[in-house]
């Protein structure tokens, strides 16, 4: 979870294995996507909640990296302190997107949220907030 990355590229092994990719950069923030496969399926026919949590966390961390990349010459180590996930709707087996928003980033701590959606961006299926330690 460290190294000189601007966000979105070179995702960790877990994210790559799960099929998480960078879909696009939107206003400087990575939008991640995950296509359906047996690796993310939960109750037959639905996106598994834990896999969704993994996608959301990755989006939150990438948002922090993108933010730090604009402000710092070298990226500090980013360590999650806590994460809270809320599930709003069942996820279908379709391409699922997630992007994060840094609410506040100081020198030692960043507060970040992330949201996930499928076909309709206005219908969120899950969200997280995360607090991460920097350095």
């Amino acid at each position: 979870m460290n190294g000189p990355r601007a966000g979105g590229e070179d995702l960790p092994p877990y994210a790559r294995a799960l099929g998480i990719v960078l879909d696009r950069i939107e206003h400087g923030v990575p939008v991640l996507a995950c296509d359906p496969s047996s690796r993310i399926e939960g109750r037959p026919g639905f996106f598994q909640g834990g896999a969704l949590a993994g996608l959301l966390e990755m989006a939150a961390l990438e948002a922090v990296r993108a933010d730090l990349g604009r402000r710092e010459a070298a990226l500090p180590v980013i360590k999650p302190i806590n994460v809270s996930i809320q599930f709003m709707r069942n996820g279908d087996l379709v391409r699922t997107f997630a992007t994060g928003r840094v609410v506040r980033a100081g020198r030692r701590l960043a507060n970040v949220t992330a949201e996930a959606w499928q076909e309709d961006r206005g219908r969120l299926i899950a969200s997280v907030w995360m607090n991460v330690k920097l350095g």
């Binding site: 092994p13 834990g50 896999a51 993994g54 966390e57």
Partner: peptide, 20 residues
């Protein structure tokens, strides 16, 4: 190794732990 969140340290990613 597929479940690692930080290739340098080899520590598991948060996602698999949350799922479990």
């Amino acid at each position: 190794d597929e479940l690692v969140g930080d290739a340098q340290s080899g520590v598991l990613a948060s996602g698999p732990i949350v799922s479990m």
